[in-house]
Structure formats: C-alpha cells, structure tokens
Design a protein around this nucleic acid. Structure first.
Lengths: 101, 101
DNA sequence: CGGTTAGATCGACTGTTGTCAATGAGGAGT
DNA sequence: ACTCCTCATTGACAACAGTCGATCTAACCG
C-alpha cells in the first residue's frame, strides 16, 4: 500500500506500480495542480473559490476534487451548503519519498 | 522552466502547471514506473532487457522510452545496434522538490 | 552485397479522460 | 412550503493515450 521501496531503489512490483501510477495520475493534470496549489496557498477553500481562478465549470471542478480525494491528496469537510477543501500533506510527502527520497 | 515555486507554497502559474503535469504524466503509468525501476536497479540497460520483464511488445517499449526521454527522465546512449538507457536522477530530484520539498 | 538484429515509426484500434449542459440532492433562508 | 444556493451526478462528446502488427532504418557480420 505504497510504503517503503522507493522508485529508484528498484524492485517495484506490478501492484505497486499500478497504485503509484494512480496517485501520480491524479496529479498529472494542470487544473488539478493549480487546484492543489490554491488550496496550499489558502489553507482551506470552498469549491466556489476555485471555480473563478481555475476557469472551469462547476461540474468540472467537482470532478477534479473527486479525483484528488480518491487519490488521498485532498480532504473535504462539509459545513452546511459549503464543502471546505484542504490538503493531505502527508500524502504528498509520501509520494515524494516514493519518488526516490 | 520548472524551478523554484514548489507546489505547496502556492502561486503555481498555468504554464508551470502544464509543464509539471507533463512530467508527472510521463511517470503516471505502471509500465513506465517499472521501466524506471528496472533502469534504477541495473544502472544501464538496453531495450531488449526491458521487453521481457515488462511484458510488452517492442514498439510499446520504444514508445515508453520515448515518453520518458521527452520528459527528461531517461537518457539513451546509442552504441552500435543497442541503445543503453539510464536515468536522469536530477530530474527526479527536481520533481520531488516541486512536489513540496 | 545479402542477411540478421535492435530499435524507431506508422496506422489502426480501444479504452480512458477532460469538459460542459442538464439534472439531482440537500441545506439555508424567507 | 417554496425558493435560492452549493455541490454532486449523469450523459454525451471530443481528445488523448496505451497497445500491437507491419514496416522502415541503420548497424553489424559473413
């Protein structure tokens, strides 16, 4: 489940490769990278704060947040009508480690 | 050109996001991750050494090496009929930094 | 030169992905 | 209850990406 065995020390199993590829794929999109960047800069933001800067429709934003949540990179906290998004920094650190830390 | 401004310190421009997404996209594939892993483990390998472990056809391997080279992650050294592949560790380190080092 | 071999390129097919308009679900306020 | 408001979901479509067979290029060896 994505622990130990960083990429550059060799011996990456197929299952590990698939799992890591999934997480990296979640980050491999300009809109999602900017989304993460925005959340990182503001601590906690709601979807309506993302729509403007990212220049995408509301369903598209919703789609991207979902992808990031499923990758374990983003966390959503529902409060009334709003959903507040925040990063999961440990997950980013984990990816960094797997990439050869 | 992908320097400074790590992801988690905010302020990622569109151009930077597109560029970073491209590199991450190059890594976001199980076959390519295992390819990198194999090269990392063996130092320098030729394509014929990859085809077996990766279980893909020769054109597919060639396609993946090309993607990785274009992303600056892999380097090919031609010697006679063979091409010897090696990693560009600085590039991986750079990505790690961008991811929030 | 002809034959073999390593790798790249092309063409086609398939599955996935980013996008939006339309609609749905549910809280908040009147 | 009724109406906004915020976000999620659905359906559709275009663009992209991974894969392989066939073909091409170029290097080595008799």
């Amino acid at each position: 489940m994505l622990c130990g065995a960083p990429l550059t020390s060799g011996r990456l199993t197929t299952a590990e490769a698939v799992e890591l590829a999934k997480v990296l794929g979640a980050l491999a999109d300009p809109v999602r990278l900017q989304l993460v960047s925005l959340v990182a800069a503001n601590g906690e933001v709601c979807s309506c704060d993302l729509q403007g800067p990212l220049g995408r429709s509301q369903p598209t934003i919703s789609h991207h947040t979902k992808v990031l949540v499923e990758a374990g990179l983003l966390h959503g906290r529902k409060a009334g009508r709003w959903t507040w998004w925040s990063l999961v920094p440990e997950r980013l650190a984990q990816i960094r480690t797997l990439l050869g830390g």
